[in-house]
Design a protein around this nucleic acid. Sequence first.
DNA 1: CGTCTGACGCACG
DNA 2: GCGTGCGCCAGAC
Length: 116
Amino acid sequence: MPKSEKLEVDQGFFDKVYEVVRHIPHGRVTSYGAIASCIGSPSAARMVGWALNKSHGLTPFVPAHRVVNRNGVLTGKHHFPGGETMKEMLESENVKIIGDQVVDFKKLYWNPRTEI
DNA sequence: CGTCTGACGCACG
DNA sequence: GCGTGCGCCAGAC
């Protein structure tokens, strides 16, 4: 079994997370759990958030602001510089936010498993 | 090597 | 409908 072959499969949890997140269309959002499920670990939603934390300032740019929790709430906004950065970035993509809640989250929800 | 923590999700009461 | 507890996997100390 060549190592190169294994390398493609065993990139690691976070790399897969980045790959999925990068596929999120402009002006759309998805959830941690959906990503986790898409990469093969349905209950590893925490790891997704953890990976995204490390993704900050990474290249290519990973739109972590498009990833919210299952409720459509911007749980990770505190990890962005400033405090309202995540909200502002989403609003710049025509995504409306009320408080920390994404408006029409259900409509804007992008399912990586179905639409990837 | 053991323990705690973490941008979540779900089951249970 | 809301609060609490547990599990998930990986890394830091």
